[in-house]
Amino acid sequence: MLCNTPWSLVDFVLFPINMTVVGCNHWILGEFNVKERFFKVYNSMRNRVMDKKVLKVVEAYSTLLPLFLSLNNFYESREDIDLNAQAFKGIDMCHPLDIVFDDEVPQQSNNDCGIFIIKFAESLMHGLIENIPNPLNVSFQRNKIAVELYVHAKRKKDEGYLSDGEFRGRMSKKMLNINAMEV
């Protein structure tokens, strides 16, 4: 499945979330379950203090997602979603999503949490969570990601194809500055 697949065609959406906004240099993974209408949190460094910080950040997702979807009549346009199901029964579509912490996430030990959530998201998408090594070999995973990106770019160049949804216009100086700041 492509990253730019419309939400009207998916049942789950994954979000890498940086915790810097609450004074923490940490990454978590969020999962919006479209059909069951909840937001699941995958955190590889769970404890009471961290859970409070995570909750503060994901409450924004929990609040804003239903508002945006409601404004676009998202649920009404999805024929595959039963609006009489328990997840929707008696709930205003603008009501915040329930937040659920997943207790099955392998707890990292001195790992790079950014690389960890990339590996975790990949494993989650393929149903292979139990195969995540702990401790994760961060150096190997970084190199693996770099090689995969290089091979993908080389194939695109050599075979001359464009990814669906790829930006085909010219980037303005403003766009270039924004992209440079994000790196």
Rank of each mutant, 00 (worst) to 15 (best):
D103F: 07
R48F: 03
I115T: 12
P106V: 00
S70K: 02
D82Q: 08
F116Y: 11
L71V: 00
E130A: 14
V58I: 12
K144A: 01
L124W: 14
R142K: 15
N72V: 04
V105K: 06
Y75P: 01
N134A: 04
D92K: 09
I129F: 05
P135L: 03
M125R: 13
F140L: 02
I91D: 02
V57D: 02
V58L: 05
A146C: 05
M50L: 04
D80E: 14
F120V: 09
N84P: 04
D82F: 11
N111H: 11
N137G: 02
Q141E: 08
Q86W: 09
L83N: 06
F101P: 10
L124I: 07
S70M: 01
L124F: 12
R48G: 01
A60Q: 05
V100N: 04
C113W: 06
T63C: 08
S77E: 15
V58W: 06
K89A: 15
N72T: 15
Y75M: 00
L97K: 09
A87W: 12
K119C: 05
K89E: 13
V49R: 14
E122D: 14
L65R: 01
M50Q: 13
M93F: 03
A87S: 15
T63N: 12
D103T: 15
K53H: 14
F140S: 00
P106D: 01
R78F: 10
A60F: 05
D98A: 07
R46Q: 14
E130L: 08
H126Y: 10
P133H: 03
K56I: 01
N134Q: 11
N137Q: 10
E104S: 15
F101G: 08
H126A: 14
K53S: 11
V57G: 04
F116D: 00
K52T: 08
S123R: 12
M45P: 03
A121I: 06
G90I: 07
I81M: 05
D92H: 13
N134H: 08
